[in-house]
């Protein structure tokens, strides 16, 4: 079931695919292999019709500590490093129509924070931190960080976080709207599970349209957006879930969505 992966665990349970970054001795730091395995797992989950929702989490204490610096030296071309390793993973994450939840079980630093920000939802353990570590080693936040963060918290706050690099506590992240919910140690497993099942039971076809067009809406003019809204509603209007929703409303029962 783990598809020969070595740096991640990949598990499908009912309608949920879980990707666990699994290099706990290195706080789940990214290696080239891990970037590639995450991408491959995302593609697999995307193609699997039974999967309605994808979870990314870490094993051990950390979510992900960012790039494994043992792979970086003075010969590293940082541009190609991103193009070859991170961008294919990030583009796959953006393109998957399925909801992706980052279950931030422990600290997410550097590109690990970038990965969390690139997901659709974030849940965070109360003692975890989000750390933009890049400036500490004279680099700029990458892996989509500078794209996603200002869209979530506004430019001024994002600049502050990116430049000053002060770790965000789970509570601060929640107040800023970066994470949906903060869960303490005891409620973590059940709380994540509950949220994941709630997302998986949504009409995920409609969700995919929300994701597709809300992302677009940040980058286009109003008239273009309104046309896209018409596309989105036309496609949703043709979905089986919409028919089910209408029927359930008439019958005064809870709808049973199948994501089609």
């Amino acid at each position: 079931m783990n598809m020969g992966f070595e740096t991640i665990l990949f598990e499908k349970k009912d309608s949920v695919a879980e990707i666990t970054l699994n290099r706990p001795q290195a706080y789940n730091a990214f290696t080239e292999q891990m970037n590639k395995e995450i991408k491959k797992a995302l593609v697999n989950a995307t193609k699997d019709d039974d999967i309605k929702c994808i979870v990314i989490t870490g094993s051990g204490k950390a979510f992900c500590s960012g790039q494994d610096l043992s792979e970086v030296d003075n010969q590293t071309n940082h541009a190609n490093f991103l193009r070859d390793r991170y961008h294919p993973m990030l583009k796959t994450l953006k393109e998957t129509p399925k909801p992706v939840i980052a279950a931030i079980n422990g600290t997410a630093a550097g590109a690990g924070m970038g990965l969390a920000l690139a997901c659709d939802f974030r849940l965070m353990r109360s003692n975890a931190k989000l750390v933009s570590a890049f400036m500490n080693i004279g680099l700029v936040p990458d892996s989509g960080f500078l794209y996603h963060l200002p869209r979530m918290v506004g430019y001024a706050k994002a600049l502050e976080i990116a430049a000053l690099g002060k770790p965000l506590t789970a509570e601060e992240a929640r107040e800023l709207g970066v994470v949906t919910n903060v869960l303490n140690e005891e409620e973590w497993d059940s709380g994540v599970n509950e949220f994941v099942l709630r997302i998986a039971s949504l009409p995920t076809k409609a969700f995919s349209l929300i994701k597709r067009y809300m992302q677009n809406s940040m980058n286009i003019d109003y008239d273009t957006f309104l046309e896209q809204e018409a596309y989105a509603q036309r496609v949703a209007g043709l979905s089986e879930d919409h028919q089910e929703g209408l029927q359930a409303f008439i019958e005064k029962r809870k709808p049973n969505f199948i994501g089609k």
Binding site: Q228, Y231, A232, R234, V235, L238
Partner: peptide, 10 residues
Amino acid sequence: VVAKELVVEE
């Protein structure tokens, strides 16, 4: 550029 589901319809 239109929604992939609606190319023929559009």
